Computed example of a mutant assay.
Amino acid sequence: MSLEDYLLPGVGTSINALPKISLHDHLDGGLRPQTIIELADTVGLALPATDARTLGSWFSTQADSGTLVDYLRTFEVTCGVMQTREGLVRVAREFVEDLAADGVIYGEIRWAPEQHLTRGLTLDQTVEAVQEGIEAGIALVAGTGSRIRVGQLITAMRHAERSLEIAELAVRHRSNGVVGFDIAGAELGFPAHHHRDAFDFLAKAFLPVTVHAGEADGLESIRGALYDGRALRLGHGVRLAEDIVIGREDAENTYVTLGPVAQWVRDREIALELSPSSNLQTGAIAAWGDDLLDHPFDLLYQLGFRVTVNTDNRLMSNTTLSKELALLSDAFGYDLDDLEVFQLNAAQAAFLPLDEREELADTIVAGFESA
């Protein structure tokens, strides 16, 4: 797949060529428009457009709604073509290829098996199909002389009542590509404690958890992710900034006070899976503004939080990980060292054994040194 090359502002270094880690990337949010058209034809699904370029524009326009609820409606189309084994295998394979083409060396693909059962597949069959696609993608990437590693994050929908069943599914497939668990979907009104049985089960099984929180809801949602979910990472977590007070001592000096939730997250280095473009589209940063410069990303970074950069849904946001890094660099003046920090943060937060995280970090350091 041909991707636009993004250069680090003022330096000219190719961001695409840098080794990167993707922690928050939804399988049903990263389809190629042409693939949607071809799969829709095989299952008889009507589309809002039948030209790849027009369809891609439709997704980004529809997703740019300002609310998470409206943003999520675009997934009715993508999920609609992911209801067969063949569809899941192809989408997962191409997903891996597209990550590798963007310089990603390790990616975690999150997706909700319960949303792919309308044509007769079982939960286990969906996981097996996605893993088949992932392994095929890895093999194709290896054939080009590159390497990528990919793990599945099995997601439960927070507005549904199948989270314990999905948690059991995730643990059942931990030796078949699954590296962790997530809950996603409509956040406001569906707190993490509704899924306490699932989180208790996962804790007993020692399967790591990330929870969507602090995107469409505020601090109470983040508290629930940490307390009820035992989250090791926060999916987005951008509204953690609501727990940070910036005051002015005098004309030249300011002070910063962290509330208890922010203090806990920073002190324990709980990673924030920030997705700048998506956060703008869903209104997650509306309290601070509607421009990337208003995003609390830089505040959180400067205060020492473990920030990571992610795409969330590449199709809906018309983005790549390289593009997100380029946008942040342009907005906040980040240089190569900053981008390296973001990738090392992601390596440290990956749901992998310690020695494998250290290997990832070594690969990142070597790649940035040679840039």
Rank of each mutant, 00 (worst) to 15 (best):
E4H: 10
Y6D: 02
T13P: 00
K20Y: 03
I21Q: 10
L23T: 04
H24L: 02
D25R: 08
H26P: 06
L27Q: 10
L27I: 13
R32C: 00
I36G: 06
E38C: 01
L39R: 14
L39S: 04
D41V: 12
L45Y: 12
A46K: 15
T50K: 04
D51Q: 11
R53N: 08
R53E: 06
T54E: 12
T54A: 09
L55A: 09
G56K: 05
A63W: 08
D64W: 11
S65D: 03
T67V: 04
D70N: 00
F75D: 14
V81W: 08
T84L: 10
T84Q: 11
R85L: 05
G87A: 13
V91G: 09
E94V: 06
E94P: 13
F95S: 06
A101E: 06
D102M: 09
G103F: 02
V104G: 04
G107Y: 03
I109A: 05
P113G: 03
E114P: 08
Q115G: 08
H116Q: 10
L117H: 13
T118C: 11
D124Q: 14
T126K: 10
E128C: 08
E128R: 15
A129M: 02
E132R: 06
I134M: 08
E135F: 06
E135P: 01
A139F: 03
A139K: 11
V141H: 07
G145K: 04
I148V: 13
L153E: 00
I154Q: 10
M157C: 10
I166E: 05
I166F: 00
E168N: 09
L169F: 10
A170Y: 00
N176R: 15
N176Y: 09
G177V: 05
A186R: 13
E187G: 14
F190L: 00
H193F: 04
H195K: 12
A198P: 06
D200H: 07
K204A: 11
F206V: 11
F206P: 00
P208N: 07
V209S: 01
G214C: 12
A216Y: 13
L219N: 11
S221N: 13
L226Y: 05
Y227A: 05
G229K: 08
R233A: 12
R233N: 12
V238T: 03
D243G: 02
D243F: 00
D243C: 11
V245E: 11
I246T: 15
D250C: 02
D250T: 04
D250E: 11
N253L: 13
L258S: 02
P260K: 06
P260T: 12
V265W: 05
R266Y: 05
A271K: 15
E273Q: 15
L274E: 08
P276C: 03
S277W: 01
S277D: 11
L280K: 10
G283T: 12
A284N: 13
A286W: 01
L292Y: 10
L292M: 15
L299C: 11
L300S: 07
L300P: 00
L303F: 01
V309M: 08
D312E: 12
D312S: 07
L315W: 14
N318K: 05
N318C: 00
S322I: 00
E324A: 03
E324V: 07
L328T: 02
L336S: 02
L336W: 03
D337N: 13
E340A: 08
F342T: 04
Q343W: 01
L344Q: 05
L344W: 01
E356A: 09
R357A: 02
E358C: 13
E358S: 12
L360R: 07
A361F: 03
I364G: 14
G367C: 06
